[in-house]
């Protein structure tokens, strides 16, 4: 029932996602803006040189795209609570954990798809993709997508208001993005920013993808892999917990009804 349930939730979300496939194109706007406007502009006046800077931020922009797509996918959880279909899901025998896992999977899938749409712009940013790099990058995209989706779901599961969640998520996402070293080299950043980056899962995801493309790492790749895996495990566990707790409002006591009486 667990696997079937996850599958059902993924099919539901992907069917809905497919209705809005225009989002994949609209979702290009933000990364391309960073890449070709911000990247060009800053690159032209920095010591790094224009082409170098664009190349440098490409993995960061890719991470940005994954981060926002995955969190946007998680917003459906909040919307779902307000429309009826979710009620039908809740009275079905699908375990609550499967709902959480399904949501994480579908969010990750949507983010990864968006990543694949951004990827072809790499050569334009001065990064011709060889086979080896592409495969390594796919791995990075997959890992980053699952991390960000788990993050989105773990946070969204706590919210019931469609207006509050986007505000909160922006307040969390933007600092995570800016501190991640997506747009500047962490090695040259002030000490406190380096420390903050160590606490920021986005930083590890960016570093891993950048390493796959440019072979330059700030963290050891093994550390990044370990941290991301741990973050995924922790957030998934949190999300499952929140969905389970939502099972009912007064589970204690009520289970004890004695039918023998």
């Amino acid at each position: 029932m667990m696997l079937r349930g996850i599958w059902a939730i993924v099919v539901l979300d992907m069917k809905r996602f497919w209705l809005e496939k225009a989002r994949l194109v609209a979702g290009l706007a933000q990364p391309l803006l960073y890449l070709f406007v911000l990247g060009k502009g800053i690159g032209a006046s920095s010591q790094m040189g224009g082409a170098d800077y664009q190349r440098f931020i490409f993995p960061g922009v890719l991470a940005l795209s994954l981060l926002f797509t995955a969190t946007f996918g998680a917003i459906t959880i909040v919307f779902d609570r307000q429309v009826g279909f979710f009620k039908a899901v809740l009275v079905s025998p699908v375990p609550r954990a499967a709902i959480a896992l399904g949501k994480i999977s579908s969010g990750a899938l949507q983010a990864a798809l968006q990543g694949l749409v951004v990827l072809p712009f790499a050569p334009l940013a001065g990064l011709p993709l060889g086979l080896g790099e592409t495969i390594a990058l796919f791995g990075g995209i997959a890992l980053a997508s699952v991390t960000f989706s788990a993050l989105g779901v773990a946070v969204a599961a706590r919210f019931t208001s469609t207006t509050v969640f986007p505000i909160v998520s922006n307040a969390v996402l933007l600092p995570m993005f800016f501190l991640s070293g997506a747009l500047y080299p962490l090695s040259g950043a002030p000490r406190w920013m380096q420390i903050a980056a160590h606490l920021d899962p986005v930083a590890y995801a960016v570093d891993l993808m950048r390493g796959a493309l440019l072979d330059k790492f700030f963290f050891s790749p093994w550390l990044s892999l370990g941290v991301l895996a741990a973050v995924i495990a922790l957030l998934t566990w949190l999300a499952v917990l929140v969905f389970r707790r939502g099972e009912d409002d007064s589970s204690l006591g009520a289970t004890q009804f004695n039918w023998r009486r």
């Binding site: 009620k87 809740l90 009275v91 009912d248 007064s250 589970s251 009520a254 289970t255 004695n258």
Partner: peptide, 13 residues
């Protein structure tokens, strides 16, 4: 009855 809420008191089957 549809298991969406739990009773505060009593029971149902």
């Amino acid at each position: 009855l549809a298991t969406l809420r739990a009773p505060t008191e009593g029971g149902a089957r």
